[in-house]
Nucleic acid binder design. Structure first.
Lengths: 327, 327
DNA sequence: CTGTTAGCGCCTTCAA
DNA sequence: TTGAAGGCGCTAACAG
């Protein structure tokens, strides 16, 4: 069912059908009603693909995140969705699954689909996908990362400062051993760890576990922590660089019969909704993911509509949220 | 930058350029390499919109859910994403925000964008969007609902049976009062409540609160429960028809200094990941949302590829997951 | 192996 | 107020 079929059925030319859909007032009332009757009868919906080809915007924004099974990104998405949907946009969501090549593939596919704009959470500040999008002239806002390219708009939180806050808090706790558990190689993670070491009193003594990014990974780690680091006997503080994983570890530790925060203190990062609702309320660094999402989406819409770049960078300030899992 | 520009720069016709992208082996090696060089140099990505118009699949699936800020749907999405992405599809996610008109608008927009298929969680079993999609001949799988239209493929759980399990469990608890808190008018919700009443010993005495669908709504409800129903004094069992809301209410009740499960028992529905990680592990009915998502996505892919309708309906069996929030 | 031609479904001049 | 013609970027015969 195309515009041609409708035209034939209504006994008019396809130009006239096209007009009733875009500029109805240009068409005589009777003709218009006749055509609308056919359209309704046939449940005709114009092919947006074809409209697109003649220049109409697709009204969809591409969003690239690292993974969907991660409450941090989900809350960002909820923020994005709120802003976009009220502006009449829908979103095409892709996840890189923490794989650089996938990030690039997904981004290319979005560009190829001629989305009206892209919101991208890159794996690295120098991800080739950033420059790729910029070269293709598709409006772009990066979030959860400070891109190397100084022309690229972004919204993120000062991760190094967040790390510093964690370090200071660890000093107050005074555990016998401090352990940092972090995710895949990622600028934001590196910043958090560096910031933490900056303010920590004995940064050289800190034990680091890497590549613990997913909720699943948290499950297998706890036995290791008990065997290798005796967290059931030595008073320990754990800094886990994201709440999603931290909540998993927290529950596993309790399950092992270890007391929190008396024996082990836990500090997370992100302040997702669940950080306050989980088994033991989690001390964490507030990132306000929902706000990040809303700001990023709004900035993208500004770029799209104004065609002028607004304040390129937005760096939010983190703060410590003290709850029962620490001290 | 279009295929024409590339052709001009490489000194060939656009057909040849088109060929190196679709059937490279048809083009002489030297010509091919010359063209590829230009493509790389110019960062050219073919316009998928135009490819689409000539019949190529868009390789995207439209997904319509009720809301994104709801862990139940997010886990379904994660399941969907897992299956789709490994089959090379990406997804366009829309949410109805529990509004029937929006469900229809979003669905129309997806059809208009000529997605290769649609996964739809309708607000009602008779949602007009279901028949709309079927008439437009876009492959469709409905989830979280049993559609009235018997030709429509679906994946869902037997909600009435789930409700029955809840009713039986409530009988065992033997509270002085039983309260049911449910979301917007929705077939699945109605089934759960009906099933519950079927097995409950005194169904006529049950108190019902409606239209409590979002996490935010849970916040305001608890004071009401205390004032009107004295849940701080009268031993009470709460059946909340979805975990997302149940977790919010559970925390608010604890915050009010009421003991769970000694004073108040809570039963949720869905068994989302957080049900086991929240303040007090939640007794709930397992829906395995991730599995629902994966099954629905797989069924859709089957319909798309085979062009034949496989077993139209999939009705999973729920079971009770006993945790500490009840009894 | 490569170029020419004709559409895909729609919108937008330009005429009538 | 309406119709005819051209073009958006690409693919797919059909010739050479």
């Amino acid at each position: 069912m195309t515009i041609n079929d409708i035209a034939r059925l209504a006994g008019v030319s396809k130009s006239t059908v096209s007009r009733v859909m875009t500029n109805p007032q240009m068409v005589k009332k009777e003709t218009r009603e006749k055509i609308l009757a056919v359209i309704n009868k046939e449940h005709f919906v114009p092919n947006n693909i074809a409209q697109n080809l003649t220049g109409a915007p697709s009204k969809t924004i591409g969003v690239v995140i690292d993974e969907l099974a991660n409450y941090f990104f989900v809350e960002i998405l909820a923020g994005i969705e709120k802003v976009l949907s009220s502006a009449g946009y829908s979103m095409q969501i892709c996840s890189s699954q923490w794989i650089a090549e996938r990030e690039m593939t997904q981004t290319q596919s979005l560009v190829s689909k001629r989305v009206d704009g892209i919101l991208l959470a890159p794996l690295s500040s120098s991800s080739p996908s950033i420059n790729f999008v910029m070269q293709s002239n598709v409006p772009l806002v990066v979030f959860n990362c400070i891109p190397d390219n100084p022309l690229c708009a972004y919204v993120t939180i000062d991760n190094k400062e967040g790390g510093r806050l964690v370090g200071k808090h660890m000093n107050e706790i005074h555990s016998t051993q401090n352990i940092v558990i972090c995710g895949f190689e990622h600028q934001t993670i590196k910043d958090r760890v560096e910031g933490c070491k900056e303010t920590l009193e004995h940064p050289e003594e800190v034990i680091i576990y890497r590549d613990v990014s997913t909720f699943e990974a948290s499950e297998t780690l706890v036995p290791t922590l008990i065997q290798q680091n005796h967290i059931d006997k030595i008073p320990t503080t754990l800094f886990i660089t994201n709440d999603n994983v931290a909540i998993g570890i927290l529950c596993k530790i309790l399950q092992a019969g270890i007391s929190i925060p008396n024996q082990v203190s836990i500090i997370g990062y992100d302040d997702i909704l669940m950080a306050n609702l989980c088994r033991i309320p989690l001390t964490t660094i507030s990132q306000e993911p929902r706000k990040i999402g809303m700001l990023a989406a709004q900035k993208l819409l500004d770029i799209i509509s104004a065609k002028a770049k607004p304040s390129v960078d937005t760096l939010l300030t983190p703060h410590l949220v003290l709850r029962e899992s620490s001290k």
